[in-house]
Design a protein around this nucleic acid. Structure first.
Lengths: 221, 221
DNA sequence: ATTAATCTGTGTATAAATTACACAGAAGTA
DNA sequence: TACTTCTGTGTAATTTATACACAGATTAAT
């Protein structure tokens, strides 16, 4: 597994090959609660433990492509926009062999995706974030780091991926923000901040079935 | 290079091993200018090109340990505190074989470190950031990303690693900030902001040889 | 030694951004 | 029809960031 050669990087003359995995924290928003997609392993190690969906990087694929492949295999999610979170390299993080993982997060609408356990998975479920079981591998940390990254992004940008439907009320958007940030926001201040980003457009339609008759907004094109 | 097995992550049954490299953007501050340590490769690919020092991850080492090893081999820098920047995985980023790189940055005092070319390196030099040559591999992007990460960190925290001596004037610190951020800062506002962090202590000593007789500060313990 | 030049050290006024807060109108529910 | 609940809105107070000028200290020049 160690072989010198002129193609190596300059400083370290010996090469060591290692499995690279991608892990994806898929966040979803449903019933007004932020959830994350977990899978239950049907094989060792960590058989019967819940983990974040992940898989090995394949030959000829980038990390982004690999994680897209993983997600599509598992959930049918295609062309997800993904954010790199961090890289995990502790030598004993995988009990059987050395694996270095790069984690990503994605934001989706749970109702769009079937949750059918596939390869090496005995179960699949959207978990509410405050009801997470103890996860396998180092995925507790992975999820925590991903959520923090998501929070940071949320505070600066208008980011909600496809967590919301095409048309949504500002209250729905605010509920989403509150779920992710884990804090309550002032309605007037929130609306002020969001609207002055000038990214949303009032469709002038009203959402029926909810008191007050709130306006539906959509992303400007 | 592809072998199935029960130790693989849940979703992707096949494993693919790949070389992992660490790359380190070592920033230094000298003559009131921000510099970066580059090395000139003496081997193909990119023979005679300048690149950021890097090397392959070794068996049994974490990424941090690996990049510390690389730096120590190259510059004698030990126990550097490192910040992870990003992960690069384009399939053709290395012309000979597949390499996935994780980049880091570090902050050092150039005068503390000898610049003696070692393994696979024909030259080593501190380059001013606005005089960078075209770098080998995708290291132009790497450096740019690392610098942006450094800027972000700088704006929120008091961060200067060991770029400055133990005792320094606030003007020296401000010069450092201005070099990294690439913009001029107001002296009074800068002092206000830095001092109210309450991390620095006035040693009551004055720096000699400079007009005005500025106070020397040090980090509170 | 005197003078000139340069750098340090400091406060305040203004502008901008964030936060706190209350009530009338619309739609659903009883 | 009355009642409840949710939406939608403006302003004052606070905090934060920005702009700005001069006196004292030290070195450099003569």
């Amino acid at each position: 597994m160690t072989k010198p050669g002129p193609m190596d990087t300059a400083v370290s003359p010996t090469s060591y090959e290692c499995t690279i995995a991608v892990e994806c924290c898929v966040f979803g928003f449903q019933d007004n609660v932020l959830k994350i997609l977990l899978v239950k392993r049907s094989i060792e190690p960590f058989k019967d433990h819940w983990v974040v969906p992940g898989g090995v990087m394949r030959e000829g694929k980038t990390l982004s492509q690999s994680v897209n492949d993983v997600l599509e295999n598992l959930t049918g999610i295609k062309k997800m926009s993904l954010e790199q979170v961090a890289c995990y390299s502790a030598v004993d993080r995988h009990p059987v062999k050395r694996v270095v993982s790069i984690s990503f997060y994605a934001l989706v609408k749970p109702e769009n995706y079937p949750t059918i356990p596939k390869n090496y998975i005995s179960d699949i479920k959207w978990y509410e974030l405050d009801e997470l079981p103890k996860l396998g591998f180092d995925h507790d940390i992975l999820v925590s780091d991903a959520l923090n990254k998501l929070k940071e992004n949320l505070k600066e940008h208008l980011v909600f991926g496809e967590l919301l439907p095409d048309r949504f009320t500002l209250t729905e958007l605010q509920d989403l923000y509150e779920s992710i940030l884990g804090e309550n926001l002032d309605r007037r201040n929130f609306r002020k901040k969001i609207l002055q980003m000038n990214l949303l457009e009032d469709t002038k339609e009203k959402k029926v079935g909810v008191k007050g008759g709130p306006s539906l907004y959509k992303l400007k094109k």
